[in-house]
Write a protein that binds this DNA or RNA. Sequence first.
RNA 1: CGGGAUGUAGCGUAGCCCGGUUAUCGCGCCUGGUUUGGGACCAGGAGGUCGCAAGUUCGAAUCUUGCCAUCCCGACCA
Length: 491
Amino acid sequence: MSKELTSRAEDYSQWYNDLVIKGGLADYSAVRGCMVIKPYGFALWENMRDQLDRMFKDTGHVNAYFPLFIPKSFLSKEAAHVEGFAKECAVVTHYRLMNDPNGKGIIVDPDAKLEEELIVRPTSETIIWNTYKDWIQSYRDLPLLINQWANVVRWEMRTRLFLRTAEFLWQEGHTAHATKEEAVEEAERMLNVYADFVEAYMAVPVIKGIKTASERFAGAENTYCIEALMQDGKALQAGTSHFLGQNFAKAFDVQFLNKENKKEFVWATSWGVSTRLIGALIMAHSDDQGLIMPPKIAPVQVVIVPIYKGEESKVPIDAKANEIIAELKALGISVKYDNSDNSRPGWKFAEYELKGVPVRMAMGLRDMENKVVEVARRDTKEKKSMPMDGLANNIKKLLDDIQQNLYNKALAFRTENITIADSWEDFVKRLDNKGGFISAHWDGTAETEEKIKEQTKATIRCIPLNNKQEAGKCILTGNPSKERVLFARAY
RNA sequence: CGGGAUGUAGCGUAGCCCGGUUAUCGCGCCUGGUUUGGGACCAGGAGGUCGCAAGUUCGAAUCUUGCCAUCCCGACCA
């Protein structure tokens, strides 16, 4: 394995790919546009998933599972929805293979054509609402608060590890409510859950907002989102929560009897975050030495590297290490003890830095005599000796400190990179110079939004929640505007 | 689907322009030994349809044509 990562300044996407691959998270697979998530990357995803799942359950949701395949006719029931997803669907047309009569391997059996094609889900609204029709009759059946952890397929033209793969893992919540107010409240609640998770666990600050009509989810009445800023100045949509109105209820005829014994269509939400969050994590924190994992979701929080001098010193070092490991584990800290003999300490140091393990401890006979260990933190690369006495508690504090420091650093970066533009020239200059979020006036029309996108590649990332109302002039057209919106180039 | 590039051992590569013994080097891997405080060293060893297919030639990794695949930049998108 090559030791150096490509410098960020040189080629950001190469740097990103190196981080993912050399950091041991994932790799390209034999299938175009799909990736293999390696054990280290999957452990990270599991930590994120488990925490999110707890938060969903704390807000009253339960998990279920719906089919991978969606009959083609389901997808077309909601007009905007099919319009949005039709271009990127994988379609199952046959159910059997056969030997090629010409002896050239195996072919699709032409006699095994499906009556109705099946779509591999790009999202599950349709199959779920088709099911909800059977589950909902009365107001007593509401609200219905269900989440599923699943994989989905979107046949993208161009893919990027974690950020945009043909298949990805995610969770999708689908809820049904008796009133519009309740549904809106739910969509906002889940947006807050996402924001809390990303900020508190991933240490990535986000901006909560709503999408403009043209950036809205296909079939939604309103799309809430959290937007994060990456180190190259581009924005990343980290999660979305949709108020679906009664669109899907009407498309799938899901009605309930209210207390007055009158039929009403139910109100819906859906919300999701995906393995893309891992991409956000990488691009928000990593440096030229490799990944940096926030302690709260790091697959390994502490790695201990023993320093041997000859076979006989292994015994006492191993013994002491095991004591320390037991103390750390008692505090719920995940530890890896790497006493493998096939690589030397220096190699291990570099390797765990590449993988982003928050805290590294090195311990040799010298340290044992002095009753200390060498502790190095990944975020600042600061090294110091810490006494064995009270070590576990001090490491716990250190992990908290690293978590906080990562967040502060990312927040400072983002604050620095939200700027205001009041003229078109300034707007374009800021985009080209350092990127970031640019707060500017917009006349509110889709046409202007489109023109800005064409000319600058910048899109409106969101209209921040509780946005300050302020009269101004549109950056492009000069038409009146009542508030600023956030523009950025995005992934 | 447009523009660019690349395909040689598990990974990274040299050789290609100008055809010529047994295809280069590094990492990794295997065996033995010495080592271990920032990517160790010595000795020995295994590993190759040079992306695929045709063609030119006495002879092709190298030249020609076609195909395939991948990556990067666009369009599309979470």
